[in-house]
């Protein structure tokens, strides 16, 4: 049993990473990674939604008929998103002010829906929950790294406003790497999202090659 969880964790974080391998969830990846903090916040919100919706779909998987499965999945994802949205607004308001506009967009993210279809509709509750959690963690990891790449080059800082997201104690994380005047603004504008994501995918493949792994080319079928 432990090998199975090991695979789930490894797949989610690296081998089958939602952003870097499946190329799913490109919309939040581009829109929310203008800073490492924003990427991290968006990733965590998505992770919560994914873990919860995987859990519910796995729980009810024997009652969901094939014909209505897609509406039911979307219903469950939308409910979880609204739950996160309301909770954030009420009790994590500073975070909500940063992410508020983008939390509803998680519904249109293909990654949660993809995991429901591929994993949670076939597997028991606990592995499904784990899959949602670690796919979400891998998503968070990718978004944070892309956010960091864009933030360093585009505004010259790293983890700016981390205190708004994580509490005043995290003010120490905020670092200025070079003065704002020298920052390449393009990187925090939309083209920077594509550049950083592309470079990160290339770097991951290079790393995989260096570790002697086979690379499967053109694995992505949908982008959303």
């Amino acid at each position: 049993m432990s090998t199975k969880y090991g695979t789930i964790i490894k797949d989610g974080l690296w081998e089958n990473n939602g952003v870097l391998c499946q190329l799913l969830g490109m919309c939040p990846t581009m829109a929310m990674t203008t800073s490492a903090t924003n990427g991290f916040g968006m990733g965590v919100a998505t992770m919560l939604v994914m873990a919860a919706s995987n859990f519910f779909v796995a729980l009810f998987r024997n009652y969901i008929t094939n014909e209505v499965r897609i509406p039911v999945y979307i219903l469950i994802v939308a409910a979880m998103v609204t739950l996160v949205d309301l909770t954030c607004n009420a009790w994590m308001h500073e975070l909500y002010k940063v992410l508020g506009l983008f939390i509803p967009l998680i519904v249109s993210n293909c990654l949660p829906l993809g995991r429901l279809e591929v994993f949670a509709s076939r597997e028991p509750v606990i592995p499904s929950f784990m899959d949602g959690l670690f796919m979400g963690a891998g998503f968070t990891l990718a978004l944070t790294v892309i956010g960091a790449m864009r933030e360093i080059s585009g505004s010259g800082t790293l983890f700016a406003d981390a205190n708004l997201l994580l509490g005043p104690a995290f003010k120490v994380l905020e670092t200025r790497i070079f003065p704002e005047d020298a920052a390449v603004l393009m990187m925090i504008l939309p083209p920077g999202g594509f550049l950083a994501t592309g470079l990160l995918i290339a770097a991951k493949r290079k790393l995989d090659l260096a570790m002697g792994k086979q690379i499967q080319m053109g694995g992505a079928h949908s982008v959303g």
Partner: peptide, 22 residues
Amino acid sequence: AMILAAFSAGFGSLLAFTDLFT
């Protein structure tokens, strides 16, 4: 249709409760 309705009702009430509290 019943399955879809049941899920809608279930998750709908979950959201209604959340809204009440938040």
